[in-house]
């Protein structure tokens, strides 16, 4: 039982109290967590990007474009000035453009692989079931064809939802075990590492 483990154990117990109800102990732990996490992300930004860029890229190699992009990102701070907040749209739209380009540039290749992986031979019952379920699921997400409102469309909807519920139930069951093991990990820390009553 050392000071570091004691602080960690007390904060652990404070967070666990939310299971009972919201209370001052949880609220303190919550505010500490937000404060520390926010600070840590700022420190990481400085350590991993700002400091190395200024020290090496700008000071030694004269890469002023790197500095320019950092300052361009800093223009986002105009968001906090009511009359000048429109200036922040420029870097914001650059970030959105990068995000959109990222999806369209890096997304297609793995997607094409997914399509070709669906070229399965119809030589077994399992494969036929697999293909049929995949097809029904895709058809469920046709939003606009006119036959969607017909009785055929409603039948497809019904069976597609049932098949998807099967998939969701399987995912739910699969994930449950992982979450239980996390709780066991925390209990191990409290009883073994902090209190030392468990080996």
């Amino acid at each position: 039982m050392n000071a570091q483990n004691t602080i960690a154990a007390v904060l652990t117990l404070c967070i666990l109290t939310i299971i009972w109800k919201e209370n001052p102990a949880f609220r303190i732990a919550e505010h500490l967590m937000v404060g520390f996490a926010a600070a840590h992300s700022m420190v990481r930004a400085i350590d991993n990007y700002i400091r190395p860029t200024l020290k090496t890229d700008v000071a030694h190699e004269g890469d002023y474009i790197a500095l320019a992009f950092m300052l361009f990102g800093a223009v986002m701070y105009f968001r906090h000035m009511p009359r000048l907040s429109w200036i922040a749209r420029y870097p914001m739209c650059w970030f959105v453009g990068y995000g959109v380009g990222y999806t369209l540039a890096y997304g297609p290749r793995p997607f094409i692989k997914q399509i070709t992986d669906t070229f399965i031979p119809f030589n077994s019952v399992n494969n036929v079931i697999y293909f049929t379920v995949t097809l029904i699921t895709i058809v469920y997400f046709f939003f606009t064809p006119r036959w969607r409102d017909s009785s055929l469309g409603k039948q497809i909807d019904r069976w597609a939802r049932r098949v998807m519920m099967m998939g969701f139930g399987a995912t739910f069951g699969n994930v449950v075990q992982g979450r239980i093991s996390l709780l066991l990990g925390r209990l191990q820390f409290l009883f073994r590492d902090w209190l030392g009553v468990m080996k």
Binding site: G101, F111, T134, T137, F168
Partner: peptide, 29 residues
Amino acid sequence: IMNVPNSAVQRGLQICIRVGSFAVALRVL
């Protein structure tokens, strides 16, 4: 269950999700 219906549902969902994500990105572009 994991290898056949679950996997097939995930495949179908992923295909539609990808097409949708490309469409959203193209609408912004």
